[in-house]
Amino acid sequence: MKYKYLNGKLAIYLEEELDVSSCKTLRGIIDGYIMKFQPYELVLDLTDVKFMDSSGIGLILGRYNLIKLLDSKMKVINASPSIQRVLELSQIQLECVQYGR
């Protein structure tokens, strides 16, 4: 996982597979960066994510709730078609997700 912080915007570049195991680790790391930088906008970039199940949806939802507490914005970008499918099947309305790659 890589991150970039610039002018109040924090971008997190997620990688590989977002499942129950990786999400437990990532949760603490991402929240650490959010608390450190207190960004006005968080971007989760899924370009290099090859697999995601509902654990990934939990990860996105959890960060979204934290970002809302900070009164900041969040965007989820570059989900592959198979990840977009999982997001749609979950039937959770995630206004932060930008569809289309």
């Binding site: 509902s54 939990g58 990860l59 939802l61 959890g62 099947l89 979950s90 959770i92």
Partner: peptide, 9 residues
């Protein structure tokens, strides 16, 4: 932090 959507998927 489970989304609770595993069975739906």
């Amino acid at each position: 932090e489970h989304a609770g959507v595993g069975f739906n998927i």
